[in-house]
């Protein structure tokens, strides 16, 4: 059962990587990498079931957090060209 699930996820990951490599704009690549991260998180969780080591779920949880933060950080970098304070004219604050 979990082997079938991991096979499906690996196929989806490969297709997502194609978009990340092709992606005409930077935003396509970020979107593809974000989706790739979600799939990787699922793959880690399923690996935990396949090898019967529940500790893998902690790694999956941390991976979800890192994936989220990394995507937001990359987006902020490309919008403001730095990761520090928000742009002076932008009253919305952080991205």
């Amino acid at each position: 059962m979990f082997i079938a699930a991991s096979a499906a996820i690996i196929v989806a990951m490969a297709l997502t990587l194609i978009r990340a490599i092709l992606g005409p704009t930077i935003y396509d690549r970020i979107l593809a990498v974000n989706l790739f991260g979600t799939k990787a998180l699922l793959l880690i969780a399923i690996m935990g079931f396949l090898t019967e080591r529940p500790e893998f779920l902690d790694i999956a949880l941390v991976y979800a957090l890192i994936n989220f933060i990394a995507t937001i950080a990359i987006m902020k970098f490309f919008r403001f060209s730095h990761l520090g304070h928000p742009h002076e004219e932008d009253n919305l604050g952080d991205l």
């Binding site: 704009t25 935003y27 979107l31 969780a45 779920l57 902690d58 999956a60 949880l61 902020k76």
Partner: peptide, 28 residues
């Protein structure tokens, strides 16, 4: 419980990421 926590977190994180991406793409 851990799987439910992952689900809950992704439920909040995924729209935030999508919205930030859409906003960054429009601003770009």
């Amino acid at each position: 419980i851990k799987l439910l926590l992952i689900l809950l977190f992704m439920f909040f994180a995924s729209p935030t990421t999508t919205h930030a991406l859409a906003k960054a793409a429009i601003a770009g």
